[in-house]
């Protein structure tokens, strides 16, 4: 996790690397495989956003994967309880780099109305969250706003690729 987002030293050919980074970013941002970690009511809104009426596939995030090994974006959709928190962390650890985390809905952002004994006060207590999507639940338009923000972030960040020398 420490290495995430760190720029690896460039070995000559600066021009080429930059271009290649941007191509890689372009490819990555339009082929996000989403892992929806659905725990509560926000899941309905995720379904609404994902199905044909709103169509999340327009943003290249349509291929939902239900295995953390195959996915790039962990979407924490809904309330995370303390009982579930270790599982969520394990799922994040199982995902292959590069990976991003989206907190979907007020509950995942900050715990929301559940300020009580059972609820984790936001997914960012245990995960490095990249994009926060507010709303209880967020409308699909808000979800797409968040996805576009994530695309911007993916495009602008330095890409890690394993054949690059460090």
């Amino acid at each position: 996790m420490e290495k995430r987002g760190a720029r690896v030293g460039v070995n000559g050919g600066n021009f080429f690397t930059t271009k290649f980074d941007s191509i890689l970013g372009w490819a990555r941002k339009y082929s996000m495989f989403v892992y929806p970690f659905v725990t509560a009511c926000c899941g309905m809104e995720y379904i609404a956003a994902a199905c044909s009426h709103f169509d999340i596939d327009r943003f290249g995030a349509g291929l939902t994967r239900f295995s953390p090994r195959q996915s790039d974006v962990l979407m924490v959709v809904g309330t995370v309880s303390h009982k579930l928190a270790p599982t969520l962390r394990k799922i994040y650890d199982q995902m292959a780099e590069p990976k991003w985390v989206v907190a979907f809905g007020t509950c995942a952002v900050s715990g929301g109305i559940y300020d009580n004994y059972s609820t984790l006060q936001g997914a960012d207590k245990i995960l490095p969250v990249d994009v926060y999507i507010p709303g209880c639940p967020p409308r699909p338009e808000t979800v797409f706003e968040g996805i576009m923000k994530l695309q911007e972030k993916i495009q602008s960040q330095p890409q890690e690729w394993r054949w690059k020398k460090s």
Binding site: H82, A85, P86, D115, Y117, L120
Partner: peptide, 11 residues
């Protein structure tokens, strides 16, 4: 009311 007992140590 707000006493939490996280399972992840040190949280």
């Amino acid at each position: 009311l707000k006493k939490r007992q996280p399972r992840i140590k040190g949280l």
